[in-house]
């Protein structure tokens, strides 16, 4: 039923990119994430699945400290990126987010031109030495975002004028432009139609070549299609984490099985 990707056999040899140890997240008085341990591998697509409100998005936002922008949110435990604790007081979230990019649920291009949307990250991080350099980065990112052919003739048109699917790929290209090591995607296809979803999923599969991708999704089919590893969250707990094929065909935990067969969710 689920075709395991050809690369599955090599997965085990990959190194850990992000390691979370006993992570707890509180929203005011609500205990949103309880004791989560997980190791996310490099050059792998990892999917977080689970019913609404299970904490998967919250946990994802911990990985590049986007939760810092919410006043009432507190995080305990440690999350290591390449062995360094990202919640260490010495870490500047700005520097962290350059390494751990993020793509959001709803496409959110800035009200600027397509070119300026892509160039935004490289400019603030000072990645380009000159205009030619920047042009190159923009083109490379748009190619990686699989949208270059569609927009190359109108780079200076506003990004908000694109279709939903194009906007989301633009946002992915924008995230790629800062040369991150990890890409976090929070339900990137939930606002898209099936054709655009297909294009974005294809893109995610290509991104695996260079990045560690973590994707939160509502759709189990999507998780099965794009990911090599899957983590199942339920009520703030990480219930089960393993090879995607195994989770979907032979879950260990009865809760995972109930979710996959549609009894909870």
């Amino acid at each position: 039923m689920y075709d395991a990707p050809a690369s599955e056999q090599k997965v085990n040899q990959k190194s850990t990119k992000i390691a979370a140890n006993k992570v707890q997240v509180f929203y005011g008085d609500t205990h949103a994430i309880k004791d989560v341990d997980v190791q996310i591998e490099d050059k792998t697509v990892t999917a977080f699945i689970g019913p609404s409100g299970c904490g998967k998005s919250t946990f994802l936002r911990c990985l590049n400290r986007m939760n810092d922008t919410i006043d009432v949110c507190r995080v305990k435990g440690e999350i290591l990126l390449d062995g360094e604790d990202i919640y260490d007081p010495k870490v500047d979230p700005v520097q962290l987010r350059a390494k751990v990019g993020m793509v959001f649920q709803k496409p959110n291009p800035f009200p600027k031109s397509i070119y300026d949307n892509i160039a935004y990250g490289p400019r603030i991080h000072g990645l380009a030495k000159n205009k030619a350099d920047l042009d190159e980065i923009v083109e490379k990112s748009l190619r990686r975002g699989a949208i270059w052919n569609e927009v190359k003739d109108r780079l200076h048109a506003p990004g908000t004028g694109l279709s939903g699917g194009q906007q989301q790929r633009l946002c992915i290209a924008r995230a790629v432009a800062t040369e991150p090591e990890v890409l976090l995607m929070d339900e990137p296809c939930s606002a898209l139609d099936p054709i655009a979803t297909g294009q974005v999923e294809e893109l995610i599969d290509e991104l695996r070549e260079n990045y560690s991708v973590v994707i939160v999704t509502h759709s189990m089919q999507q998780a099965a299609r794009v990911s090599q590893k899957t983590a199942f969250f339920h009520l703030g707990n990480l219930v089960e984490y393993g090879e995607t094929g195994q989770i979907f065909t032979n879950p260990v935990d009865p809760r995972t099985e109930s979710y996959i067969t549609g009894r909870i969710g």
Binding site: S15, A19, D82, K90, V91, K229, L238, D253
Partner: peptide
């Protein structure tokens, strides 16, 4: 709590390209 992990044993961490713990001048 983690009920299951598919990769037994500690995995080696990739070496960081640049450390997060030191701020660059920019």
């Amino acid at each position: 709590m983690t009920d299951a992990t598919s990769t037994p044993g500690a995995m080696p961490h990739a070496a960081p390209k640049s450390s997060l713990l030191t701020l660059d001048s920019r």
